[in-house]
């Protein structure tokens, strides 16, 4: 069965392999035995993860990137909208920034505290570049010139009913204060097309409360069809990268919320505009997962 699935899985072409080799050569020069990552990132594990998820990125979701030219060779706080019920947008953004944006970088995602205490999961996530979501960790990462991936909507961003798709939830302020403290530019990013992975969703909030979960999405296939019902539909996804938002020099990271809000709103609006611009050119579903292009 596994062999059959492996054969069915789209192959990575020799050109893509060559590109991967080049990307990981660059990444190895940054993270190696002489300069290991204190959070436990392991480039070899990252490569295995990227090899594994690449067919999903290229063939299943057929990701396209717009605005790659806005990314310079410097650290960013990559700030994106959160979509799609399960957080696969984080994986797609990580692949985009390591494979399709020059210079390649591994975005450091922030994970929930409890995950680092789970056997195997904690080590696996750390090797893949994830870091415990802690203010101090964030500051250290930015000071070490790492790029961080944040979703200021939090879990509210992914747990939306169908009628709320692409409605941005209000942004938290913490990410902006950290960017301000370290003088790191915020890179606004919009992910368009991921909401359609689960086209009809009802969030059973009361049930989630009883189960002690942040949300409990119900779709036509989940939980009816069990784990298979959770497989996202092959919606085609576009990633829009906006112009970096420079940190104001006259604002203190400890400024009152009213002053911080102005800037957070501007970033929120920038992402909103990119979503609105991207929605009319969405490509819909593509069931030809052996092809990497558009249908």
């Amino acid at each position: 069965m596994i062999k059959m699935l492996k054969n069915f899985r789209p192959r990575i072409t020799s050109e893509e392999q060559k590109h991967f080799d080049q990307v990981f050569k660059t990444l190895k020069s940054r993270y190696n035995e002489d300069n290991p990552d204190p959070w436990g990132l392991d480039v070899d594990t990252c490569r295995k993860m990227i090899d594994f998820f690449y067919p999903m990125y290229r063939n299943y979701f057929k990701v396209r990137i717009f605005g790659a030219e806005n990314v310079e060779n410097k650290p960013y706080m990559v700030t994106a909208n959160h979509t799609g019920q399960i957080a696969f947008d984080g994986i797609l953004l990580t692949l985009a920034f390591s494979l399709d944006i020059d210079p390649p970088r591994i975005l450091r995602g922030m994970v929930e505290r409890f995950l680092s205490s789970i056997p195997f999961a904690g080590e696996f996530l750390a090797k893949g570049g994830s870091v415990l979501g802690d203010r101090q960790n964030c500051l250290w990462l930015l000071e070490r010139e790492e790029s961080i991936l944040v979703f200021p909507e939090g879990v509210r961003g992914i747990n939306k009913n169908t009628d709320n798709f692409y409605n941005l939830q209000s942004f938290g302020k913490g990410f902006f204060r950290l960017a301000l403290k370290t003088g790191t530019d915020v890179l606004p990013v919009a992910v368009v097309g991921a909401e359609e992975a689960y086209p009809l969703v009802y969030n059973a909030k009361k049930l989630a409360g009883v189960m002690g979960l942040p949300s409990f999405p119900v779709t036509p296939t989940w939980p009816l069809m069990g784990p298979f019902g959770a497989i996202p539909l092959p919606t085609q996804i576009d990633i829009y990268i906006g112009k970096p938002y420079k940190m104001p020099s006259d604002l203190s990271p400890d400024a009152p919320d009213s002053k911080i809000n102005e800037h957070v709103m501007l970033i929120e609006n920038q992402i909103k505009e990119m979503i609105e611009k991207g929605l009319p050119s969405r490509r819909g579903y593509s069931f030809n997962i052996l092809s990497s292009g558009e249908d």
């Binding site: 505290r113 409890f114 870091v131 415990l132 203010r135 960790n137 250290w140």
Partner: peptide, 9 residues
């Protein structure tokens, strides 16, 4: 602890 930051001041 699993929630220790890297690095502790």
């Amino acid at each position: 602890y699993p929630d220790n930051p890297v690095f502790i001041k």
